[in-house]
Write a protein that binds this DNA or RNA. Sequence first.
DNA 1: TTCACTCACTATAAAATATGAAGTTACTAG
DNA 2: CTAGTAACTTCATATTTTATAGTGAGTGAA
Lengths: 159, 159
Amino acid sequence: MSRADLAKHSCTVARAIELFGDVWMLMIVRETFLGNRRFDDLQRQTGASPHSLSQRLKRLESIGVLRRETYSEHPPRHEYRLTTMGRDLWPVIVSMKAWGDKWLGEGTPSIDIRHKACGNVILPQMTCPECHEPMEAHDAQARLSREFEHERNAIRSQA
Amino acid sequence: MSRADLAKHSCTVARAIELFGDVWMLMIVRETFLGNRRFDDLQRQTGASPHSLSQRLKRLESIGVLRRETYSEHPPRHEYRLTTMGRDLWPVIVSMKAWGDKWLGEGTPSIDIRHKACGNVILPQMTCPECHEPMEAHDAQARLSREFEHERNAIRSQA
DNA sequence: TTCACTCACTATAAAATATGAAGTTACTAG
DNA sequence: CTAGTAACTTCATATTTTATAGTGAGTGAA
């Protein structure tokens, strides 16, 4: 097995990791959430080389996370905008922010999140949609499907 | 700027991305949440080469995400266990799962999450800790600190 | 005591990927 | 006519990753 095989992994977490386990993919998504949509701005703010950026934008577009939109025909100019699929990555970035603020932060965070509805500056929290209690790792139990369990045992018993 | 410079970025999100924007880092964390703690199991289940795995484990240990524990002196045997810092990465993995289940999933997910307290199989949700409403990207407004804004404008105006 | 086997790695060469710098296309503004 | 901007592409070099093999410290069976 190697990195590319993760794309065919039966677990969606592994497949998502294969797509977004990359500095530039995540940095571009973060940047688009901050409102930057153009190649040059993305390049400067993420720090990616034009080559890397170009490749990642193509991948993000082909996945369906970004949509490339022409905003000027003459001269040809484009913007990269988050699709619904892309906006759904918000919790991923926010979770990273929460972790980063807690474990890497000194002083004031560079970015605040304000909840438009209630107006407060907050850090979103993981909660149970059934009982509405906040959740952490030890509140949860992961259960593997029978097929997935078999798959893993098969891997386990390979030389 | 290049990848390594992200480590000195003033934004904690960027610093977190620099650490975890890597397939193997994320796959190892996911695997430890599933209960695997040993080198060989991690290697087989993640699909990383021993070299890559060894490097990542060292990095995870030096960051403080994993703690290397000897469980047998003779022969020397070790386990890698999540620290509190590591367990705090749970929302990151769960967010990826939620995204993956929604956008990459066909059929039944390979992994279920059960909330121990209420017993339901659920997908955790991002909510506002103040008003307890579920939150998505469009419910939030990102605000940059003044310093960070200046930093970004400085980058912007660079040739 | 010799053989096969496990765990936890390290070493190495070849292959794949990323990087920075420069170049390109298609314009506009002065 | 020159300079500048946006959105890239190309290319030679540098770095990383991968697969494969090997190592050390043991255990258990014949």
